Amino acid sequence: MTEYKLVVVGAGGVGKSALTIQLIQNHFVDEYDPTIEDSYRKQVVIDGETCLLDILDTAGQEEYSAMRDQYMRTGEGFLCVFAINNTKSFEDIHHYREQIKRVKDSEDVPMVLVGNKCDLPSRTVDTKQAQDLARSYGIPFIETSAKTRQGVDDAFYTLVREIRKHKEKMSKDGKKKKKKSKTKCVIM
């Protein structure tokens, strides 16, 4: 069974824990209790493949930012979460993405942009803004509501699919490099 290491990042209060708990335990946590770091595991079937999701729910508070490099190193894919009623959390996505790329030393890291709290009427981040940002990053965008469960499975499952595509691409690139290195030079 394939294991996928997913990391949920975003500013404090955007609903990272609520999304994760909704996926794992099928219930909505409405009281806000700032996370330092929590880890969850769940076995699911995605596109006919049974897999184990190892999900790291991270601290959004700035005082825990020193811990970010460590979990970013171990993560295979990242859910970059903002709240649709919090423009600052949307603007912060850029910083999370840049930090992930720096730590992973790669421009090509599996990510999904997630606009959470889409059940709320007080939207300050337009869907088109988020779609445009995701398009500019070359990553999928999904709106979710941890409260109603809308888009929750889709967000995590899409990230797994992005990781699969990335692994497939990397193995193809690896095979191309191996083929090239088999060419021999004969000096007579």
Rank of each mutant, 00 (worst) to 15 (best):
E62N: 08
K101G: 10
K182T: 01
E63D: 12
F78N: 00
Q70K: 03
K178A: 07
G13Y: 07
I187R: 10
T127E: 06
L23Q: 15
T158M: 15
S122F: 06
K169W: 03
V45I: 07
H166P: 03
K178G: 08
L6C: 09
A66P: 08
N26G: 13
I163M: 11
E37Y: 15
I100H: 14
G115S: 08
K104S: 12
L23F: 11
Y96W: 13
G151H: 15
A155W: 15
K184R: 04
E168W: 02
V29T: 07
S17I: 00
M170E: 11
L113T: 04
K5E: 10
V160H: 04
D153C: 06
Y40K: 00
I84C: 13
L53I: 10
R97Y: 11
A18P: 02
G75N: 03
Q43P: 12
G10A: 14
S122V: 05
V9T: 13
I36F: 11
I55V: 07
G174P: 04
Y96P: 03
T50L: 13
Y157Q: 11
M67W: 11
G48C: 04
P34S: 02
E63K: 06
R164I: 13
E3L: 08
L23E: 15
E37D: 14
F28Q: 01
Y4I: 13
G77S: 04
V109E: 02
D54S: 02
R135V: 08
T127Q: 06
V160W: 05
Y64S: 14
I21Q: 03
T158P: 05
D173K: 13
F156I: 10
G13R: 07
R68L: 12
K180Q: 05
F156Q: 02
Q129S: 10
G115N: 06
L19M: 14
K117M: 15
I55L: 05
V109T: 13
D33K: 00
P34Q: 02
T127G: 06
I24F: 14
T87S: 06
D92G: 05
V81L: 11
L53P: 06
D173Q: 03
E162S: 12
K165A: 12
G115E: 06
T87A: 13
S181E: 12
K169A: 09
Y4K: 15
Y157A: 10
R97W: 15
